[in-house]
Design a protein around this nucleic acid. Structure first.
Lengths: 199, 199
DNA sequence: GTGCATATTGTGGAAATCCGCAAGATCGCC
DNA sequence: GGCGATCTTGCGGATTTCCACAATATGCAC
């Protein structure tokens, strides 16, 4: 499923006009008539951004946003509202909403925001995939190799590691070489930088 | 100068009442009748938070905020406004304002926000001082030592470093030992972790 | 000129790392 | 029982690091 704008609004006229606007600017778009409908479809891999009406029958926009956040969604959310409400805007933005715009709004502005949001999501996913590949590599390490890695990252010498793990230095050397191989690094420094901030 | 709430509002009545409210809750407070007055006093070392009225004679709150941001201020800013304006709230928060509250507002709420803002600033400064101490140490390194450090962080062996810098291995060893000493680390791994994310 | 910081190099030895070669033990799975 | 993954160890040599001792050169500031 490629990246697209997910539009959630209970007003069919708005879904149609906004959907047409976005498509006409080259932004793929998918519409949902209720928060519940979108929530049923949502999964963490959905990429793109979310255009969310505030007031809807059933679940409100902010309620959906809260639930998605709890479930680990990082989808940038642009709130749409017909009735200006400062506290709600403040609350939404402080919770991490991408934007909060009042209807009616300038078409160009809105499309630009959507494009910005799509770009943000793309960048985030690119960064996360890097982290994932590192995690995947860490998980391929055997238990012993992970233990040795911890001690290497603590800056300890092989002899000290051998002592702490109650094994011979030679064994430590073997684990060390194997885990470097698996992690795709050639020195302890590279390893430290690869895992910077991950422990 | 200890941390405090800086209150900027052109309405003397509000300065007095808000100042009294904050003081009565144990929050040190300092008032300014105009954005220009505060700007004249401001310096990067000012710690605490800023309570900023939107509409004022002369420079407006958002204008002051923009200028402070340009000058590198990290002071959390709470905007105060009497006339709800969603686009302005959105703009302020997206630029990094801490909060945006409408007057009149609940006293307890406001004091709580101020306390949160003060805590945020304190945490930020604590984190920054750690980073600063690292930067200070880096700055104490000589040019050559910094060059050698870069290459060490690139995971290169002393012999390679010697080759690239066109100096003897022995000299690299000397620089290496000296910079480790100055940076307060004992291994290249510790060095890499100390500078994680800083280059 | 003197003094200080910086940069440079050499010698030589102790300590540590890196690595190929070889091999034994355990454990779970088919 | 056999196979594969994992953990383990030893030997020996090449390579690298670490460091004390010793020394020369340059440039800047007082």
């Amino acid at each position: 499923m490629s990246a697209r704008a997910y539009l959630v609004d209970d007003d069919e006229a708005i879904r149609d006009s906004l959907g047409w606007l976005l498509e006409s600017r080259g932004v793929a778009c998918e519409s949902y008539p209720s928060a519940e409908d979108f929530l049923a479809t949502w999964e963490p891999s959905l990429a793109g951004c979310l255009l969310l009406d505030i007031r809807m029958d059933g679940m409100s926009g902010p309620e959906l946003f809260d639930i998605l956040c709890e479930r680990g969604s990082t989808l940038p959310v642009i709130f749409l509202t017909g009735h200006g409400d400062v506290p709600m805007a403040v609350s939404a933005l402080k919770k991490g909403a991408f934007d909060f715009v009042e209807k009616p709004c300038n078409d160009n502005e809105l499309v630009n925001r959507v494009i910005e949001a799509l770009k943000l999501d793309e960048n985030r996913r690119a960064a996360a995939s890097g982290a994932d590949s590192v995690n995947a590599r860490v998980n391929r390490l055997t238990t012993r190799e992970q233990q040795v890695m911890e001690l290497i990252l603590a800056g300890k010498l092989n002899k000290v590691i051998a002592d702490e793990l109650q094994i011979s230095m030679r064994t430590v050397e073997v684990h060390r070489a194997n885990l470097f191989e698996k992690m795709g690094v050639r020195t302890a420094v590279e390893l430290a930088q690869l895992l910077a901030g991950k422990r």
